[in-house]
Amino acid sequence: MTDRMRAVRGHVVLVLVGLACVFPIYWMYATSLRRPNDVFETSLLPWPLSLASYGEAARELDVLGLLANTTLVAVAVAVGQLLVALLAAYAFAAYRFRGEKLLYLAMIGTWLVPFQVTMLPNYVLLYQLGLLNTLSGVVLPQLLSGVGVLLLRSHMRSIPAELLEAARMDGRGSWGTLWTVVVPVLRPALAALAILLFVTAWNEYFWPAMVLQRSGAVIQLGIRGFLGTEGVRWGPLMAASGLACLPVFALYLVLQRQVVSAFVRSGLR
């Protein structure tokens, strides 16, 4: 087979996979833009367009309030995880100390333990601390991201030791070196991880549902309201879901360059 044919075949496969990924998202927006009576239409183009479903969703849900809450939770979780991962990874990458390996494995281990195992102990703990029904109750148990520590540590280890030594010679302490050398050098990796953590936190459904125990807290719980016992109301459900996706898309657009370069570079290392 010639190189050209191989390339064409590869691209056909990529296009098919790409379409399969994009189609559900397209269908969500397409459905949300149909008139309320047309939601079960199967035509590819939603025509005529209508914003009625968005209106319905906005009437029944405090969409902005929910989005704000969700953003708050997701940002708090992502920033918290990033900060903890950064400091932990720095310690693991730059220092040798007794019990280092054990502690590192324990941190990575949290990533391997299924959520269902920690869910009840965490819930009981939050109850005892009086943090049920609070946003901090949602955020607090999620502050350690094992995968974040793992990723950042391996990225930090790829920073040449001489760079850190140069910073020490130039007069920076550990703390100063972290913020003026390590963080700027790791910016692409941090951006990629930030997106990953933010999206994961944003899409979190079950844990907020457990801790908050009411629908009016985060957008994912609000959307649940459209899955009623008398049937699913697809129009407003898709409209609210479409709105819930927007912040994630926006964040990706802003950080896209760093994310792509981080993934490309991590492939080269």
Binding site: P160, E162, A167
Partner: peptide, 13 residues
Amino acid sequence: LAMVFQSYALYPH
């Protein structure tokens, strides 16, 4: 004391 490193260790950013 000032040091010059083999890899130069310049701050890339």
